[in-house]
Design a protein around this nucleic acid. Structure first.
Lengths: 211, 211
DNA sequence: GTCTATAGGGAGATAGAC
DNA sequence: GTCTATCTCCCTATAGAC
């Protein structure tokens, strides 16, 4: 946002606002939303507990900024994973499940935030915008998998199940009592599960048509 | 636990311990884990803020008791839904997704708790026991769906995906920005999604065998 | 078993100096 | 923009009366 020619002298590192978001995300990853506090974030960023309030009006605004940043990161990662997966639409959509799982496992509890706060209302436009970016990217991938005659609403439902399925798998892994394995194998399982769902969905469409 | 012949005179209603768990679950449903406090639960139950500490050593013990109660409820509901679904194993397993979704939508945020706390360790045997009951019930339903030659470990993976998928769908519905619909239609969608996953899984098994 | 009272701590947020 | 200092509120948990 700020031009690189104004190095922002006067505080301990170039951009406190960005630093607070970064440390906020790190704190969320370690303690979850429950352990989050403006004071702790300030300490991590090396400033006093009052400093954050120059950049964010209140605790919720800082949380919202973290959520928006996480959503933006995820969207980029999913897009990259789809790109890497090659030309087949099914491969591309399924790959997003692996990338999502990988992100959640690496960032632990930070994910709760995205779906746990009151960010749906008009009070957090940035979060909504990033949320729409994520949804939009998945809609593109989803509509490429489904036949052309599937309605937009049905595609949205299909994509929604794909996302929530993946979300559930990844979050349960993080919190659950499963034997911990390496991230790669967990991500691979997520891709397989997504693929199973997609093929099952397509099969149901076929059965409906031929009936 | 207490015999009905000893009505427990001396405090304002028959069984404060049970009342605290009940109110704790209600509070969790309204505010989530973040808004939970022993003091609030005490007020809801009509006792002083010190009273709960006669029945639970600390805040976490009360949370654990609530979690165990929720898990027990869910297990019973899933079992009942499977029973109602008829004889077909696929119908029975898929029906649990609907019952789970229904429970989550009716109890809102109360669900976070089950997967959000440090209940995995040996510190909360009751929670672990109820968690195993739930897993066991699903394993029975899952192994009935899969061919007999599928290993126990693979069945566990399959059931795990089924549960986490359902969990993700339901929790995203609760917190998400989706247009609110009636619970029945949401539950029906969950059943369909579970069915898609199951058929996709079985189809993959078939393809593997015939290859 | 439940009460009142309280100690002790953490965190949100503001005021005013620099 | 950031600091120090502070006010206020809420929560956990304990002590001692009944």
């Amino acid at each position: 946002m700020s031009s690189p020619t104004t190095p922002r002298r006067g505080y301990h590192h170039g951009d406190l606002r960005a630093g607070l978001i970064r440390e906020g995300i790190a704190l969320l990853a370690e303690t979850g939303v429950a352990g989050f506090s403006v004071a702790k974030v300030a300490v991590r960023a090396g400033v006093s507990s009052a400093a954050p309030y120059r950049h964010f009006p209140d605790r919720e605004a800082l949380l919202a900024a973290c959520a928006a940043a996480i959503l933006a990161d995820i969207t980029d990662l999913l897009a990259a994973a789809a790109e890497q997966a090659g030309p087949d639409p099914l491969d591309r959509l399924a790959a997003t499940a692996g990338a999502y799982t990988r992100y959640v496992l690496e960032h632990r509890a930070g994910i709760d935030l995205i779906y746990s706060y009151e960010f749906s209302g008009p009070h957090h436009p940035t979060v909504q915008e990033q949320s729409r970016r994520l949804t939009g990217a998945l809609m593109d991938l989803g509509s490429a998998v489904l036949p052309a005659d599937v309605s937009w609403a049905d595609t949205a439902d299909f994509v929604y199940v794909h996302l929530s399925t993946t979300h559930g798998y990844a979050t349960l892994l993080v919190k659950g009592t499963r034997p911990p394995q390496d991230i790669d194998s967990h991500a691979a399982r997520a891709v397989t599960a997504a693929r199973d769902h997609i093929t099952g969905y397509l099969q149901r469409l076929n059965n409906r048509e031929t009936a």
